[in-house]
């Protein structure tokens, strides 16, 4: 009987934690809109941002081997700069565990948009028996000049979200629109998860303090859909970093004999107003 109770509670616990499976790859820096050339720190973390929950080892396959990232760099004034060699492996601590992440200290130089992109090696998610590869973008700007924010990055990103609103000039109350693309073409009716970085990052860990109370935890992450042109919009209820993830934007793919969910992720910063 005791065993049955234990089993049942495990089932219930698993069932309750199931909605928390919303993986998000980050390209994180504290400020997206900078006034001038300066040194910044960027962190690549594969985590559950809303809960500051389970953090995955980026690029870990079914056998437990961690594969190095495939691509990391930025596009500025139409030119791409590869930064993969500058990445440093770090251990990132969530509220529940530790995981392999990466960071880089660099000087962000030159007026205009710097469209950062990251392609990790596929990660094996045992709970779903699938591989996940999140092709991620974050756009940082210096001194306000709009140069690249609305452009397609293309190679090396197989899938990406193209912003229709400047992702670094959103103030609380404003909305954001984007288009989910695969190979540069819109993905109609794309399924999108929206997450919020509800715990700030300090050093290489999440802080325990929440930025906002979740009205109903089983509705997190927020689910939205693109229309027939791959376009979506979202109005933010709070300031902070918001992430959009178009699930399986790459279509039906296989990796190591398993289903591969190739997702397009974009991060947008909402700034508070006094």
């Amino acid at each position: 009987m005791k065993k049955l109770v234990l089993l049942l509670s495990l089932v219930v616990a698993f069932g309750l934690s199931a909605p928390a499976y919303a993986h998000f790859q980050t390209i994180y820096t504290p400020q997206s809109a900078l006034s001038k050339t300066q040194k910044i720190n960027i962190k690549l973390i594969f985590t559950h941002p809303w809960e500051a929950g389970h953090t995955m080892d980026i690029g870990k396959d079914q056998s437990g081997t961690i594969h190095p990232p495939i691509a990391f760099g930025f596009m500025h004034k139409g030119k791409k700069k590869d930064l993969i060699e500058t990445l440093k492996a770090i251990t990132f601590t969530s509220l529940s565990n530790e995981g392999r992440a990466y960071d880089v200290n660099m000087k962000l130089k030159g007026m205009g948009d710097h469209v950062f992109y990251f392609v990790p090696a596929p990660y094996y998610e045992g709970a779903e028996d699938i591989y996940i590869q999140q092709c991620t973008k974050a756009i940082y700007n210096i001194a306000g000049a709009p140069t690249d924010w609305d452009a397609l990055v293309g190679d090396p990103l197989p899938v990406e979200i193209i912003p229709l609103d400047k992702p670094y000039s959103i103030w609380k109350g404003m909305s954001f629109r984007g288009v989910v693309t695969c190979g540069g073409k819109p993905v109609p009716d794309a399924e999108i998860e929206v997450t919020y970085m509800n715990h700030n990052i300090e050093g290489n860990k999440f802080v325990t303090k929440e930025n906002m109370e979740i009205p109903q935890p089983d509705l997190v992450p927020i689910g939205i859909k693109a229309d027939s042109n791959g376009e979506f919009s979202f109005t933010f209820p709070n300031a902070g970093w918001w992430g959009f993830c178009a699930l399986g934007a790459g279509g039906d793919l296989k990796y190591n004999g398993k289903e591969l969910s190739q997702d397009a992720v974009l991060w947008v910063q909402v700034v508070d107003i006094k």
Partner: peptide, 24 residues
């Protein structure tokens, strides 16, 4: 449109300024 200008020190005794307008 808003005029924009941002400068940085090249570290070699020279300064580079970049300019533009808010509409690109």
């Amino acid at each position: 449109h808003t005029p924009l200008c941002s400068c940085y020190d090249n570290g070699d005794g020279t300064i580079t300024c970049e300019g533009g307008f808010s509409d690109g």
